[in-house]
Simulated scan of single mutants.
Amino acid sequence: MSSAATLPAPSSLPPPARAVATPTAAPTSTPTTAITASILRIYAVFQRSPSLGPSPSVNAAFSELVSLCIRPYDSATAAAILEDRRVRAIANALRAKCSEGEFLLEAWWANRILAEEGRGEEAWTSLRAFPYYQNYMDLSRLELSALAAVHPAPIGSLAFIGSGPLPLTSICLSTLLSPPPRRIHNIDMSPQAISVSRSLCARLGGAAARLSFECADAKEVALEEFDVVVLAGLVGGSANEKREILRSVVRRCGNGALLMLRSAHGVRRLLYQEVELAELQALGLDVLLVVHPWNEVVNSVVVCRVRERGRL
C-alpha cells in the first residue's frame, strides 16, 4: 500500500520523461555483468538522492531501471541477475525505493493537475499527459481480459486496495467497464492520498467522479459486498507482509469473490514483490489464471477465487 509520505507540492519540474538511455557495457563485460552493474549503480543514485520525488536525475534512474527489468531475458540470464549476491542484498531495499518513488511521482502529478484548476476535459487532458498513463490503460485492459476469461459476466462492484494519490487503475476501469459497475471503491491507508485522489476525481468529473474512497488499513477493511477485489502491487513491501495482508483480505472477502493480485516475474521482481502462488491455496484461494506480460506492462496478473468458508 502507498506509504504515508508527505505529498509534495507542485513545482516547476518538467514532466518525467519516458525515454531512457541504454547503458554501454565495457567490451570485456558479459551481458549479465553489465546489467547487474547498472542495477547497482541505479540503487546508489537512489541512496544519494535527498528525495525520490520527480527530478531529472531520479526520473532518468527510474526510467533506466524499468527498462532494464522489463527486457525479455531468458530464464538463465534472469536467474543469474537475481541470484547475484550483491543484487540479492539490495532487492528488498530497492523495491522500497521504487514504492516510495512511485508514490511521490503520482502525488506530484495529482497535485499538479489540481493546481492547474482545470475541470472536466481540461483536467482529463492533463491526466493523459502522465508519463505512464498508457501503461495503466494497457494493464487495466489486460486485467479485464483476465477477469472475463474466468467470470464472463458484468462486474457489479469492485474494490481497489492501495489506490494511492493518483488512482489511475480505478479511473481507467471506470472508463473501460461496460456496463459500468454500481461501485468502484478505492482504499488506502494514507489520509493524504485519499484526500488528493478524491479531489482529483471530483475535478475530472464523469465516470471518475463516481468513484468512492475510504482511508483504511487493508487488514481491517470490510470487503464482503464486492464481487472483485484488486490488491495493488505495492501493497506489502516484503513477502511476509504481503502474505499477512492477503490472509486478512481473504477473510474479509465474500464467499466466491474474485481476488485479483498484481505480481511480478523474472527480473521485474526487483520492481514489485512477487506473489508466491504455492501459498495461496493455504490462504483460502483457488488460483484460476496467471498472466505474465512480456511488453511494457510490468505487473503479472493473478486471478483467484475465494473458497467457501467451509472448504478453507
Rank of each mutant, 00 (worst) to 15 (best):
G120L: 02
G284F: 10
S190A: 08
V221C: 02
P8V: 07
G162V: 08
P50V: 11
R311F: 10
R252T: 03
E64K: 09
G162C: 01
R48P: 02
D227T: 06
V20G: 12
H151T: 07
T6K: 15
S126H: 03
L277T: 05
R85E: 07
S57W: 10
L271S: 10
C215H: 08
A208C: 04
Y136M: 05
E102P: 02
L173W: 15
L13R: 10
I187Y: 02
Q273L: 09
Q192S: 13
T22D: 08
A149Y: 06
E122L: 00
K97E: 12
D227W: 00
P10K: 01
A19Q: 10
L144W: 00
T6S: 12
N92Y: 10
S126V: 01
P180N: 05
D286L: 10
V290W: 10
V196R: 02
V275A: 07
F130P: 02
G156T: 04
Y133C: 05
G266M: 08
D286E: 13
M1S: 14
M189Q: 09
L65M: 12
I113T: 02
G164V: 08
T77W: 06
H292W: 08
F160S: 08
A78Y: 06
A216H: 01
V250L: 03
D138P: 02
T6R: 15
Y133D: 09
L312D: 13
G118L: 00
D74N: 13
G256P: 05
I155Q: 06
D217I: 03
A208Q: 08
P180S: 12
E100Q: 15
A278Y: 11
S55K: 07
S51P: 12
S126K: 00
R85P: 04
R119F: 04
M260G: 04
S174Y: 01
T28P: 05
L288M: 09
D138Y: 04
T169H: 07
E106K: 07
C215W: 06
V45I: 15
G53M: 10
R119T: 05
V228W: 08
R119V: 04
L258Y: 09
L234D: 13
